[in-house]
Design a binder for these strands. Sequence first.
DNA 1: GATGAATGAGTATTCATTCAT
DNA 2: AATGAATGAATACTCATTCAT
Lengths: 206, 206, 206, 206
Amino acid sequence: MTPDASAPPAPPATARGQRTRAALVQAAAVVFERDGFLDARIVDIAVEADVSTGTFYTYFDSKEAIFVEVVDELIDELYQQSHVGDMAGPDPVARIAAANRLYIESFARHAALYAVVVQVASFNSDFRKRRQASRLAFVDRATRGLRHLQETGQADRTLDADLTAAMLCGMVENFAEVRHLLGQQFDDDNAVAAMTDIWARAIGLR
Amino acid sequence: MTPDASAPPAPPATARGQRTRAALVQAAAVVFERDGFLDARIVDIAVEADVSTGTFYTYFDSKEAIFVEVVDELIDELYQQSHVGDMAGPDPVARIAAANRLYIESFARHAALYAVVVQVASFNSDFRKRRQASRLAFVDRATRGLRHLQETGQADRTLDADLTAAMLCGMVENFAEVRHLLGQQFDDDNAVAAMTDIWARAIGLR
Amino acid sequence: MTPDASAPPAPPATARGQRTRAALVQAAAVVFERDGFLDARIVDIAVEADVSTGTFYTYFDSKEAIFVEVVDELIDELYQQSHVGDMAGPDPVARIAAANRLYIESFARHAALYAVVVQVASFNSDFRKRRQASRLAFVDRATRGLRHLQETGQADRTLDADLTAAMLCGMVENFAEVRHLLGQQFDDDNAVAAMTDIWARAIGLR
Amino acid sequence: MTPDASAPPAPPATARGQRTRAALVQAAAVVFERDGFLDARIVDIAVEADVSTGTFYTYFDSKEAIFVEVVDELIDELYQQSHVGDMAGPDPVARIAAANRLYIESFARHAALYAVVVQVASFNSDFRKRRQASRLAFVDRATRGLRHLQETGQADRTLDADLTAAMLCGMVENFAEVRHLLGQQFDDDNAVAAMTDIWARAIGLR
DNA sequence: GATGAATGAGTATTCATTCAT
DNA sequence: AATGAATGAATACTCATTCAT
């Protein structure tokens, strides 16, 4: 009946508690984005949320614990924002181009925070797994798209859809990282055109 | 006339000093690979090199300073080891496949240390630049290869060689990182085949 | 809007904090007096105040920062204690003698700590300025006294009051330092008589 | 027959050794004057003398040991340079003025190094004694001068020559220190005039 | 005598976390 | 729930001194 000594803090029971917790997550995003994970201090997050440091531990066990929530929100947004809907029309090349553009634009918006995810993944295996899981969601979506084109005879049926999607997604992901995390200058329109062209040729479109 | 107050330590004047310095660099590689950058302590490096901590500072100003040397050796090896020589024959597809295989094999051998480079690049802009410079060397080599194929009529002359090479290199690099840093399981033979196929189609080989 | 990154710690918000801070200043005076500035360690001050070393940094940025407070208290006391009030009567010579005696007695009481001020002033220009400012307060007081005697026709009106006061104060200060910091033996009664005699003759009393 | 384990190094037997030793003392003066005692490092002195650090210990046991020599040279120079010779003529006031002027000018020339003496005296009792001994030499000279004036009926015979000389010398010394170590601005001509006037009045000249 | 590499003791400082109020 | 004061472990770096060559 006694709870685990190391159990995470219970979710807030009151509306006031919920507000404080949300303020902390929001503040953490600001601080992590500004300072990175290593330089972010608990007290900075507390100050940004306008609460005392003690209050932080009412809701989170550690810096990692609050970072999980920040990252989950980020990953979710990235995934949602890069979804190609019906607006893009039926043309496969146009849809691929739109997907690439959306991904890169979304990545650009969240680059500062994504850099922190990369940082934490570099020394914390939990976040490495989390990052990998997030990647797979993109690859799965691309795989489904590719299979659909294969089934409808638009893409080369001899291709290994899993591997091909993984490779092409990796190309796009790598571009986004080099562009926005390493800071290499590119003309984004040309870049999207080039990666889309490669993608289309690779899957034998038409 | 007075040298910089913060000038790096002078290179060793004696053979004994040169041996000690080399032992430190060697030891640092072992410790960084084992513990990562953040968890590596100066004293660990000194112990591994069988010298006192004070001796470390006879040759290096900081952990970053010795890491530079470790990284430069690593980057150089990666570049050299992934060079496709004459042994690969004249067939472009075979040469591309060989290049990809060599790169991935070399990456695999140095993955643990390369992970540390990624880690440090995530919070240190000097190493970010260094990492980016190393990437560009690969892309340049690929660009030269592609231009050659274009000039000899084997590859599509309408392609932007710079952008295309950047994208395809990014694909390979991303694969290597996902495979060896994030730990996703792949069958390497199939993977090399898939990325080579994409590469060949993308540049319109034949 | 963000405060200085290197802003000094905020003053304590609670009574408990105020008690702790005051205990640290008190402990610092003891330790500085006992060990001098250079040999005083933060941990000694913390132990003397019965708190952990971390707590020291809750209230002060450095050994210098807490020394400022110790010195300011000391300087204030020295100045207050050497003030000649109405008790000394109206006779100028008696008043000068009283002032000199009070100064030297007060200096004697605080000699150990004053020695530390001299020490710190010898390598820290901030404290050098602070020491000099404290001196000027004494000289100013003496200058006002001398001017008053000049205006009432008791002292030679042709004297440069500023310079003369500076010189005579310097004589007294030097005596106190030689006596209590360098340790030369003097009969204090004779010494006070001698310096008072010089002072009186110098300003042409009567 | 075996020498004391802690005996100071023997004086150099060869001319080469004498040159090296002298170069070290000369270099030490430069470094102490530039950096102060605390910030002066043995290696700095060795570099300035153009020898290796090991060589330093061929001639001196410690930083203090070499500082002794630097200080002794300094004190000697100060004393010699402030000697009033026959050039000053027979007039007592003129001779006192000349002595004060010479002292202050000499002090000004050596102020930077003298500041280091004060610094070291603040934490090392050996140098405190040395400093005090140097002071006494000046006071003795002044005492002899005063006694001579008393014996020739030029100065008040009722004065305690020792005490009076100590006080007046202290006044001059204090002025020099405030002027050149604490950095207070003075017009030196007026200052010398003022202190000479005080001196003359104090001993009842004429 | 000279060299310069090697030594290693010694301490300020940070900050995640706890806990009394 | 909130506060904010208190804790204390953990580590980089300096430099006087030694000593093998």
